[in-house]
Amino acid sequence: MGRQNTAVNATGWHAVIKRWRRNNRGRLNRLLTRLLGTAAPRRRALAPDTRRILVVRLNKRLGNILFLTPLLRTLAASLPTASIDVLIQDVKQKALLESLPGVGRVWVQEKTLTKLFGLARQLRRQHYDLAIDPSGNSTSNRLAMVLSGARQRMGFAGDTQWLRLSHAAPRPRSRHQAEQAVELFAESVDTLALECFDTLAVFPAAAAQAQARQHWDAAFGDADVRRPVIGFFAHATGNKQLPAAWWDDWCRALATRLPGATLVQIRPPGQPANLLEDTVGVSIAELDVLAALMTRMDVFVAADSGPMHLAAAAGIPVVGLFQSTDPAAYAPLGRGCISLSGDTLTGTQAALAVARIAASAQRGDTAREG
């Protein structure tokens, strides 16, 4: 009992200290904003010679990196002569961004202090004309913008925006981070004809497509793959993950509505066994190769997770499952994507949604053949 009370007290003190630090950081940020920062929006034209752009998103979550793709495509289409570089944290995500139109170099933040200083020197040598922070509350993003030495800086204005910005958007109207990033650019820049994008996108290179074909052939061998091909990812972090019983219900309901479908389970690297029987399992560590494999599927089903957003970016209709997160902020953004939550989040409803998407795709194929 004594140890239990000690653990509870430790947890309580940890929460108090964390709240104290957060409150003090907020007070400091508001003070710095009044002295140095950007509390009010600033909409103005870009410098006419804006050619080199750096987008900073220092976050390791796959979904957050994919949320950059509408902004990157908007930048490339609206500033066709510009070269767009990106600074991220996870080298595994690099290939997903390198193949986007207009993207030049994808920098990866180094972990050691020596390498961080080296990266800062390299960034300053690029002489960036514009640095963009598409998130509203990242200290790391702001520091990287300062270290880059860019002569123009773009971000969201607010009472805790302690960085002095040349271009600042008001608090975003949209809740989805991908839409907020595009809104930032549209609301910060004046006298520029914009071509905006509102869906995620990746374009795997030929080498990734070839590797995906090898994984596909290894999974199916000489077997005749029956359509539709339904991919699914049954894993997610924390409360976002649905129980195995939910997936069993979904599988039974799907067998009733699409008895001829081929099920392909995407497993995390290192996961040796499939969750469901009578399904083909594939585990791929390279994200661009996984995206290329997903293009061979007709529908993808997953809880709120990186693979859910990757499938949407690959152009596959996605049925997103939201148990504990809000689809308004994290929905899969892509062609034919839908989200289920609340009372609609059942195996039967998910199977019905898959069947409707598959039927619509089949009608489209028939129309094209005609």
Rank of each mutant, 00 (worst) to 15 (best):
A7R: 13
V8C: 00
T11N: 08
G12I: 07
K18R: 14
W20V: 00
N23R: 13
L28T: 12
T33M: 04
L35H: 07
G37D: 01
A39R: 13
A40Y: 08
P41A: 13
R43L: 07
D49P: 12
L54N: 12
V55Q: 03
R57C: 08
N64Q: 04
P70G: 07
P70F: 07
T74V: 06
P80V: 01
A82M: 05
S83A: 11
S83P: 03
I84M: 08
V86F: 05
V86Y: 09
L87R: 12
V91G: 01
K92Q: 12
L96F: 11
L97D: 03
E98Y: 01
G102Y: 02
V103I: 15
W107Q: 07
W107I: 03
Q109N: 10
Q109M: 15
Q122W: 04
R124V: 08
Q126W: 07
L130N: 07
I132K: 05
S135D: 05
G136N: 06
T139Y: 11
N141H: 09
V146L: 14
A150T: 07
A150W: 09
G158W: 05
G158M: 07
T160R: 15
L165P: 11
S174K: 14
Q180E: 10
Q180D: 04
V182F: 08
F185G: 00
F197L: 05
T199I: 06
L200R: 14
A201K: 15
A201R: 15
P204N: 06
Q209M: 09
Q214V: 02
W216I: 08
D217Q: 15
G221E: 02
A223M: 02
D224W: 08
R226K: 15
G231S: 01
G238A: 10
Q241F: 01
Q241K: 10
A245V: 10
W246V: 06
W246T: 02
D248R: 15
D249K: 15
C251M: 00
R252I: 03
A255V: 07
R257V: 03
R257W: 03
L258F: 11
P259R: 12
Q265K: 06
P268W: 02
Q271H: 13
P272V: 00
P272R: 11
L275D: 01
D278V: 04
V280G: 00
E286N: 11
L287T: 09
V289C: 14
M294S: 02
V299D: 03
A303N: 04
S305A: 12
M308H: 00
M308C: 06
H309R: 09
L310D: 01
L310S: 01
A312C: 00
A312V: 07
A314Y: 08
A314H: 08
P317G: 03
L321Q: 05
S324N: 14
D326N: 13
D326K: 06
A328K: 14
A329M: 13
G336S: 04
L340R: 10
T346M: 02
T346H: 12
Q349N: 14
A351T: 05
R356P: 02
A359V: 01
D365A: 15
T366Y: 04
